[in-house]
Design a protein around this nucleic acid. Structure first.
Length: 417
RNA sequence: CGGGGUGUAGUAUAACGGUUAUUAUACACCCUUGGGGUGGGUGCGAUCCGGGUUCAAUUCCCGGCACCCCGACCA
C-alpha cells in the first residue's frame, strides 16, 4: 500500500478532551473515526486490524468444530416476545416500520435457536456448533472509552447445542481453552484472567475473560496463585478463590473481552427445541454461548500496547508487517525503496510504503511511531553506502543495518508467528 | 438515567459584552529544507440550534441538541 494513497490521515493535534488511550491513538493515527458516541467507522488501517483479529478468531472457531453462518441484525419482535426479553432487556433498540416492530439484534439466541430447530431432530444432529462474526446493537446508556463500550460493534458469537449437560460441560472447557489460544496468539494471554462471574439462576458461574487495564469498567479480584479472578458482582457470595480458597485477593480494574456461558435449556425451552435420543425419548437441547467483542479487543490491545509516541501492534494483528520509509532526495534512494516494495509484496510481506513527498523526516518518523507497524525499514544515503537498509522493531530501541540481500530472510524470521 | 464539564475553520485553539473573530496546523500554489513535526511567502476556511437580556451576544440567561468525564446500569 502506498501511504500517499491511503485513505485517512494522521492528525498532528488531537482533542484536549480527556478521552481514553485507545480512542486517542486510533483516531490520531487514522484507524477509526467517530460517527456518534459509541459508533465508529473503521478506516483502511483500522479495518485491516479488525480483519486480522477476525481471522485469528475464525481459525480457532473452525478448529473446535464451529461452522460459520451469518444471521440477520434485524429481528422481528415475536422472537423476542417468546423469551420475554422484549420487555426485560432494556438496552434493546426497538423500531417500528409500517406497523411491524423489530429489534436490532444485541445477541442472537432468539434467532439461532429457531434456526437450529429447523434442522435438529435427532441425537444424530448433535452436537452442533454455530458461530458468526457480525454487528450487534446495544442501547448503552453511556457509550465510553472509545472502542471499549460501543453501541454498535462487531462480535463473534458461538452457540453450541448438546444432548446433555455432560457434553455441554466438555465443550465448554474446549471453548475456554480455545479462547486462551486466541489470546495467546494475539499476545495478550498474560494479561488475561479467567474470571468467575454470575451464572444466573441456572449455573453456578459463567466465565469472563478479563484484561487488566485502567480503562476497564469491571472490578475483579485476582488470586495470584491460580491466575484466576472473581468478578466483583459475585464477591459477596464467594469471598475466596474458588480453586484454592485463598482469601488474599488483589483488586484490579479490568475490561471483559470475552465470556462463555452455559445456557443449558434457557432458550431451548421457550422455543421448544427438542431432539429424540437413542431411546426414542424427547429431550430439550442443552446449549452454551460464547462471545468475543472484536472492536473491544482491538481497543484493549491499544490500551495494553502503546507508548508516548503511539501504538505497538502485535505482529499478528498489525495492519501491515513492514513500514518502508525512504529518507533523502537522491534518486537511487527512491528507486531502491520502490524495488524493495515490489520484492516484499512478491514475498507476501504486507508493506506500507511511505512515498509521500513534501513531508519532513521528523513528521514521517512520528507518523511511523504513531501508526505502530511492528517493523520499520529505512532506506537512506547512509544505508545505501553499505548496500543496506536500517531495520528497527517498534517495540525495541536498537537499529540494525541489514544487507539488502539478506533482508527477506531476516524479515521472514522476524515475522514467524 | 443522576451529577459535572465543554460546544468557534478539516484538526487544535484565542477573543473584561464592542465584527475586520486570533493563532497554529492541515489544504492549494511558489521557493527552501531532507535522519525526529525545516524556514519563508500567497491563498482558502469557523462562532451547534432556538429563544431571552442589551444600543450591541462567540461572550450573560433559559431551553434543546451533541460530545467528554464520574456514578448507576450492562443477557
Amino acid at each position: 500500500m502506498l501511504q500517499s494513497k491511503l485513505f485517512g490521515k494522521t492528525q498532528k493535534f488531537s482533542s484536549r478532551e480527556d478521552i481514553s488511550i485507545n480512542e486517542y491513538f486510533l483516531q490520531k493515527a487514522g484507524f477509526i473515526t467517530k460517527t456518534a458516541a459509541g459508533i465508529y467507522s473503521f478506516l483502511p488501517l483500522g479495518f485491516r486490524v479488525l480483519k486480522k483479529i477476525e481471522g485469528v478468531i475464525r481459525k480457532e472457531m473452525e478448529k473446535i468444530g464451529g461452522q460459520e453462518i451469518l444471521m440477520p441484525a434485524l429481528h422481528p419482535k415475536e422472537y423476542w416476545k417468546k423469551t420475554g426479553r422484549w420487555e426485560t432487556m432494556d438496552d434493546l433498540y426497538k423500531l417500528r416500520v409500517n406497523n411491524k416492530e423489530f429489534a436490532l439484534g444485541p445477541t442472537h439466541e432468539e434467532i439461532v435457536v429457531p434456526l437450529a430447530k429447523n434442522f435438529i431432530q435427532t441425537y444424530k444432529d448433535l452436537p452442533l456448533y454455530l458461530f458468526q462474526i457480525q454487528t450487534k446493537f446495544r442501547k448503552e446508556k453511556r457509550a465510553k472509552s472509545g472502542l471499549l463500550r460501543q453501541r454498535e460493534f462487531i462480535m463473534k458469537d458461538l452457540y453450541s447445542f448438546h444432548e446433555n449437560e455432560k457434553d455441554l460441560d466438555v465443550y465448554y472447557e474446549i471453548v475456554k481453552k480455545s479462547y486462551f489460544e486466541i489470546f495467546k496468539k494475539i499476545g495478550i494471554k498474560n494479561y488475561t484472567y479467567l474470571t468467575y462471574a454470575s451464572g444466573g439462576s441456572f449455573s453456578k458461574y459463567s466465565h469472563e475473560f478479563q484484561v487488566i487495564t485502567k480503562a476497564g469498567e469491571d472490578t475483579i479480584f485476582i488470586c495470584e496463585k491460580c491466575k484466576i479472578a472473581i468478578n466483583k458482582e459475585i464477591i459477596n457470595e464467594t469471598f475466596a478463590c474458588p480453586i484454592c480458597g485463598n482469601k488474599n485477593l488483589k483488586q484490579e480494574k479490568a475490561i471483559e473481552i470475552g465470556n462463555i456461558f452455559k445456557l443449558k435449556t434457557k432458550f431451548s425451552e421457550p422455543f421448544q427445541l427438542y431432539f429424540t435420543d437413542k431411546n426414542g425419548e424427547k429431550k430439550l437441547v442443552q446449549m452454551g454461548c460464547y462471545g468475543i467483542g472484536l472492536g473491544r479487543l482491538m481497543g484493549t490491545i491499544v490500551e495494553l500496547f502503546h507508548d508516548e509516541a503511539g501504538i505497538l501492534w502485535p505482529k499478528i494483528v498489525a495492519p501491515f508487517d513492514v513500514h518502508l520509509i525512504p529518507i533523502g532526495t537522491q534518486k537511487n534512494i527512491d528507486k531502491t525503496a520502490k524495488k524493495l516494495y515490489d520484492t516484499l509484496q512478491k514475498e507476501k510481506i504486507e508493506v506500507l510504503y511511505d512515498d509521500r513527498k513534501n513531508k519532513s523526516v521528523g513528521e514521517i518518523l512520528k507518523d511511523c511511531d504513531l501508526i505502530g507497524i511492528p517493523i520499520r525499514i529505512i532506506v537512506s544515503e547512509k544505508t545505501l553506502k553499505e548496500n543496506s537498509v536500517e531495520l528497527k522493531e517498534r517495540n525495541k530501541k536498537v537499529k540494525k543495518l541489514i544487507r539488502i540481500s539478506n533482508l527477506i530472510k531476516i524479515l521472514k524470521n522476524l515475522l514467524i508467528l
